[in-house]
Simulated scan of single mutants.
Amino acid sequence: MDFVDEINRAHHELVDGERKVFTLRRRYDAEVKDVWDACTNAERLSRWFLPVTGELKLGGSYQLEGNVGGEILRCEPPRLLKISWLHGENPGFSEVEVRLSAAAGGTLFELVHAVEVPPDFWSSFGLGAVGVGWDLALLGLGLHLSTGEGRIGAQAFHLTEEGRRFITASAQMWGRAYEAAGGSPDQIATTVAATATFYAAQEEQS
């Protein structure tokens, strides 16, 4: 698999406003029901994303190990899942919606994350601070659908040369999405560099 090419397989889009709304859209060579199961089955989620606990049904709550938690707001198998995506004691507004549809013998996967971002954090990191993480997640999902595995972190992907190229390409792609949304060239350059540096620092600590 050409990991950097995986970035180009996804459409990256930003709507800038009081709430930042960003969208990732790509096609997988798998049936809708299989992609849905990979995204909602706790055992499969632990293979490509993170272990999850909770009451995994409409109105229930979930917790990703060492990460975010929230409530299941909508669940319409096998097409739509909407959850709150909360981190910390005062996280503000943050919701993630996943939409699946049949496309060219496979599945069109669309992820929409609407979030209120503190202005100082946004000016420092921009969309890439969150977007790179989602690109890594979608890469893991693609590996899982094709091989049955897919835990990028477990494979020390961040420590590899391919991992560094992937992270840099992802940050640059989100920079282009920020430009299309009206971001200034100076701020885009700053946020892309800061995002890539942040993930590099995480690699060194691993």
Rank of each mutant, 00 (worst) to 15 (best):
H12K: 13
T195W: 01
E149F: 01
R79V: 01
G183D: 14
L64S: 02
V132Y: 10
F22N: 12
E18Q: 11
L86E: 14
Q187S: 13
L141A: 02
A200M: 09
W134I: 12
V98Y: 10
E149I: 00
E6H: 12
E97T: 15
G54T: 05
W36I: 02
V117T: 14
I188K: 14
V96N: 06
V35S: 05
P185G: 14
A154S: 10
G92W: 07
H12M: 07
T107G: 06
S124W: 01
A30P: 02
R44Y: 03
Y28W: 12
V130F: 15
A189M: 06
C39Q: 00
A169G: 02
I188W: 10
A38D: 02
P77F: 06
D186S: 15
E161A: 14
T40N: 10
L45C: 04
N67F: 15
G153F: 05
E97C: 14
A104I: 00
R176A: 15
F198T: 05
N8E: 09
E89P: 11
V130A: 14
D120P: 05
L108C: 12
T191H: 09
V52W: 04
L143M: 08
S61C: 07
S123C: 07
C39P: 00
F49L: 14
S101R: 15
L111H: 04
G182T: 06
V68T: 12
G163P: 08
A177Y: 13
Q187F: 08
N41M: 03
M1P: 09
G59D: 05
R47G: 00
G131D: 12
E179D: 15
Q172C: 01
R164N: 04
S206R: 13
D37N: 03
L45H: 06
L58M: 08
A137N: 03
L81F: 01
T40E: 03
H87E: 10
G59N: 08
A171W: 09
G69P: 03
E161L: 10
G105A: 04
G92D: 09
V192M: 07
W85R: 05
G17L: 04
W36Q: 02
R44G: 01
Y199A: 01
A114Q: 13
L73N: 02
E179I: 13
V35W: 01
D16M: 09
D120N: 13
P51F: 01
G133D: 09
G175Q: 11
P78L: 04
V52P: 04
S94Q: 10
G126P: 07
E203N: 11
A129G: 15
V132G: 04
W174K: 04
V115D: 12
G70R: 08
W174P: 06
G54N: 06
N8K: 08
W85F: 13
F22I: 10
F121A: 11
R176I: 12
G106H: 03
E203T: 14
E6L: 00
D120H: 14
A103P: 00
D34H: 10
